[in-house]
Every structure is written in structure tokens, then in C-alpha cells.
Design a protein around this nucleic acid. Structure first.
Lengths: 225, 225
DNA sequence: GTCTGTTTGAAACATACGTTTGAAGCGCGG
DNA sequence: CCGCGCTTCAAACGTATGTTTCAAACAGAC
């Protein structure tokens, strides 16, 4: 291709390997040999391994971020002044993720897994990069969530958002494995879209759970060993 | 103490470092220098780094597993034949975790964070170790969940359990950080117990969400970039 | 006190990593 | 054809890792 396809081959290989093995556990040598390029190419084109990680994220996060912004625009316009509901907000998010232009059939899975890893493998530099690069759509999502759940105290909302993020990031980060397990056990095939379709109602219900509900642990006489 | 406290010092240091940095990112040299023991001591007493990781888990998972079993025994006895409710089951679990005999004040946080990491940093050997070592209480928990949610199809239940695990593991694995953020933003202090008290209702509500509820994405005209 | 098995200690080993180097190869305008 | 950017390549560098080695220190039994 026009602009040296070496850089794309590296990004493709890195994306896939990062997704299936994590960042620290993936060496530049694995990446370059999978991409069939010279080892030095990574440092030549990207500067460092960390910069490569950033580039991998930027490649799919930037289009996603744009798609998401227009989805939120549409949503807010459609609601004309009234704040969108929780369900609508969550759907706008998952729809944007699912509709992303894919490089290949596993695109969505990789995308999800990488996002999960980003949250999970607390690589300081990655977190910083994502925060300062994509703070706008993230902040907007938070604002929409806030307007959609006015009945929650901000502390309650804070924790429940963390729970949502957790359920999402975790599930998505191992969606491939979970799908395979289910497939083996029951023969049921599951698409990422279906997982999302099950996840959203779960999240919405949890988010709107009756109350802090400080259920006293029901009279347990557990004798601690 | 009697049986060389070297091994305990190593376990203490390893536990703490693993919890705050992850497994691959923690070197044996960090561990041994924090524990003030010789580098070779790890390989002498445990055999390998992986075996050390297993030992760290076994040290708190075995008592926990025992505590959990008696909690489930109590619960089932108290229900006399009837299957315990979802709330009861979840509470039995979190109660057991919280009531664990602690080595120090941060014990619970470390415990939680390690569990989160175990699920999250897909170290093949760890997963295998945990599966074959603690399959019994885990399987029992699954059975209780199944009996507490007979209205769910097994596929629905499967996914919702994953969502619960995700919310829990993720939240717990970063509970320290999340607590600090909230503290800085609002000045509110939060104990692990309080997090659990907020998490359980969230999980229960999500688990019992109305239905698969295949909400059609509400008429979006998103133009994908 | 001496012997024996266990534990510690300092040093080295082999390997893997991210990164750098400098020469070779390439495409292209002059 | 030459010369000049950009890119590729093989090789090396420096560092960090997990693990091994073997001698010294130790503790308890006789």
C-alpha cells in the first residue's frame, strides 16, 4: 500500500496478541515475527512499546469515539430537551460499539477485550493516555448517566457506575472464552450483539435497584474457623 | 517462630506486592528485598515463582473456603429443605469474605484485589490451580444460585452470573483506588463492608432483571463515520 | 564437642526483554 | 548514473528476570 504497510501489519499483529495475552506478556519479538517484519521496525515507526500500545488503542478508539458522539447527538436531539433514559443511553453506547466498522469478523471481540484489559491491567501510562485523549466522550456519558438517574445519591451512583463498568469490562474482556465455554456446555452459539442485549437489561436493573437496601445479613450464626 | 518465619515473611511481602502490582510485574527480587530474605529463599522454600503465587492464594483461600462451606451449611439448615433465596446466598458469600480472620487491617482489600487479579490476569497456571483446588465450594455456590433463580433459563443464568462475577471482581480488584477517588472527590470514607452492602443489591437486581428484554435499539439513525 | 540435616548467603548462570546501532536496500528526482 | 531520504535488516547492547550453585551458618541429637 501507499504508506508502508509495515506499520499496519505491526498494528494488526499487536492488536491480536495484546488481546489474547495482555501487554506485559506480549513481547515485541512475538509481534514482529507474527507481523513478519524486522524487530527494529516497531521502535523505528512507533518509538517504543508503550507508544505502540497507544497507537493500537487510538486506531479503534478514535473512530469509536466519533461514532459515539454522533450517537449521543442524535439521542439528545430525539429527546428534545428531556434527558434520555438510562436504557436509551446504554443502548446508544452498545449500538455504537457494535456498529463500528470492523477490520475482520473478530473485530468486536478484540475491541472489547482490549478495552477490558485497559481497565484491568493497570498500566499507568495507558490509563493516562486514555484519560487525556478520550475524556470528552467519557465525560459526556457520565453526564447522561447522571441525568438518567436523578433519584440516586451521587455516592450511590458512583458505586453503581463502577459495578456497571466492571460487569461490562470483565465480560467483554473474556467474551471469547465465555462464549466457547457456553458453546461446549450447551451447544448454544452467541454473538457479541446477543451478549450486549443481555448485558444492558442487567445493568439497567442493577442501576435502578430499589435502594441502598442495607439488608442486615440475615441472622447468621457462622462460627469462623 | 517455630517453622522458619522466612516462608511467612515471603508470603506477606508477595501478597502485598502482587496485590498492588500484579504478578508478572512483581519480581522475586522485589519480594525478597521487601521480605528481607535472600533471593534464593523463594526457590528453596516454594520451588518456583508460580508455586509461590499458588501458595499466596492457598493461604487465604483455604480458610475462606472452609468458612464459606459452614456458612452455606448454616444457610441450608436454616432454610430446612427450601432453597435459600438469591439475597441470602449472596449475603452468605460476602459475609464469609468479610468475616475472614484478617492478618492486618488491609487484609480484606488485598484478599479482594488478589481474587480480582486471579480472574483478570489470565495466568493459565493460576486458573488451573484454582479450578482444581477450589471447585467444590465454587460448584456449590453455583448450585445455590441455580436454585435461587429457577425462573431463568440456563443460558440467561449463565450470562448473568458472568456479569455478577465481573462487577464483583472488577470492583474488588480496584476497590482501593476507587475508594481513594471517591474520598478525594467527596470526602466520603468507604469501608469494604459498605461496598459489599451496595454491591449485593445491585447484583440481586440485575440477576432478577425483568427478562431478556430484547429492547430494540430505539430507532437510531446513527450514521456510522 | 561433633556430626547431620536443614536453612541461609553471595555469586553466578542462562535467557529474555526493549532498545540502539550502522550498514545495506530501495525509490526517485536530478 | 548519481545522490539523497526513507525504510529494512542483522547484530549487538545493556538490563532484568527466574533459577541454580555451592559454601557457610545454624540447630538439635548423640
Amino acid at each position: 500500500m501507499a504508506q508502508s504497510d509495515t506499520v499496519d501489519r505491526i498494528l494488526d499483529a499487536a492488536e491480536e496478541l495484546f488481546a489474547e495475552r495482555g501487554f506485559s506478556e506480549t513481547s515485541l519479538r512475538m509481534i514482529t515475527s507474527k507481523a513478519k517484519v524486522n524487530l527494529a521496525a516497531v521502535n523505528y515507526h512507533f518509538g517504543s512499546k508503550n507508544a505502540l500500545i497507544h497507537a493500537v488503542f487510538a486506531r479503534f478508539l478514535s473512530p469509536f469515539s466519533a461514532t459515539l458522539e454522533t450517537a449521543f447527538d442524535d439521542l439528545e436531539e430525539r429527546c428534545g430537551g428531556n434527558p434520555p433514559t438510562l436504557n436509551q443511553t446504554l443502548w446508544a453506547l452498545t449500538e455504537s460499539a457494535v456498529r463500528m466498522p470492523q477490520r475482520n469478523d473478530r473485530g468486536i471481540s478484540i475491541f472489547m477485550r482490549l478495552l477490558g484489559l485497559a481497565y484491568t491491567q493497570s498500566q499507568g501510562h495507558l490509563r493516562k493516555f486514555l484519560e487525556q485523549e478520550y475524556s470528552q466522550p467519557f465525560g459526556r456519558f457520565m453526564r447522561l448517566l447522571k441525568e438518567a438517574t436523578p433519584e440516586l445519591s451521587s455516592v450511590d451512583r458512583y458505586w453503581r457506575i463502577q459495578f456497571m463498568l466492571g460487569a461490562t469490562a470483565f465480560t467483554m474482556s473474556s467474551s471469547d472464552a465465555l462464549r466457547d465455554i457456553l458453546q461446549n456446555k450447551t451447544g448454544v452459539e452467541t454473538s457479541v450483539q446477543e451478549i450486549a442485549a443481555r448485558l444492558v437489561p442487567f445493568l439497567a436493573a442493577g442501576m435502578q435497584a430499589p435502594d441502598k437496601l442495607l439488608t442486615p445479613p440475615p441472622e447468621s450464626k457462622v462460627s469462623v474457623a
